[in-house]
Design a protein around this nucleic acid. Structure first.
Lengths: 106, 106
DNA sequence: TATTTGTGAAACCAAATAGTTGCGAATATA
DNA sequence: TATATTCGCAACTATTTGGTTTCACAAATA
């Protein structure tokens, strides 16, 4: 079973879960209220997020609060960072084109 | 059919393809030589990458060179950027713990 | 012209995925 | 104690995914 951060954030529901608990730790039930799906489905997503350590649990009584654990996000950052300059350069080139057009209009 | 950048980079082979063609544009055959898989399988990955605009084609004769198109990567960067400070803070806290341990050893 | 080369696309298959339903365990509450 | 709440886990299902095999088409080459 593949369990890496890239696969974890591939699902839009899981990205939404991350965004929610990054703001505030929540229980599965509280999370499920934000989505049009069952508590069990959210629980499954939480399990996947837990397995790749994007999320950690904190049990208080019978409730389990899920916290966001940002450390693993670094793997994603490390992957895209080498390309950052490429897309920023690209925008620079677009700016050049736009300014060229502007000049021609004069 | 879901075709977003997050789903595209979820597959390790596709991430490797991106890393390769980011260095230099390549044909499907040339790409396939780098992997333990068929040219057709690579072609399918390229199709997915093309559909979410992470890659663009340039036909010269009967060969098709695939170029990396970094623009869409920004979506991924935008998603993880809000968390950057969180994991960097985390590392700071780790540093604190480590330095505390160091002090105790003295 | 006939053949080889480079390619995308379709058909098919096994495995993974996201979801549901139905439990049982543990904690809280009457 | 009896009941309700919160939750994880297992079984099952439909869909998606990554891969192979086969094919057709266009460009290069003999």
């Amino acid at each position: 079973m593949r369990r890496d951060v890239f696969q974890a954030i591939a699902d839009p529901t899981r990205r939404a879960i991350i965004a929610l608990i990054a703001m505030q730790a929540m229980t599965p039930n509280a999370l499920a209220e934000h989505f049009d799906t069952s508590r069990q489905a959210v629980s499954k997503h939480l399990r996947i997020l837990t397995e790749c350590q994007l999320v950690k649990q904190e049990q208080t009584g019978r409730e389990i609060y899920y916290h966001f654990n940002p450390g693993q996000m670094k793997a994603v950052a490390d992957f895209i960072e080498p390309f950052r300059q490429m897309w920023e350069t690209k925008f620079d080139q677009l700016d050049k084109v736009l300014s060229t057009i502007k000049k021609k209009k004069r």
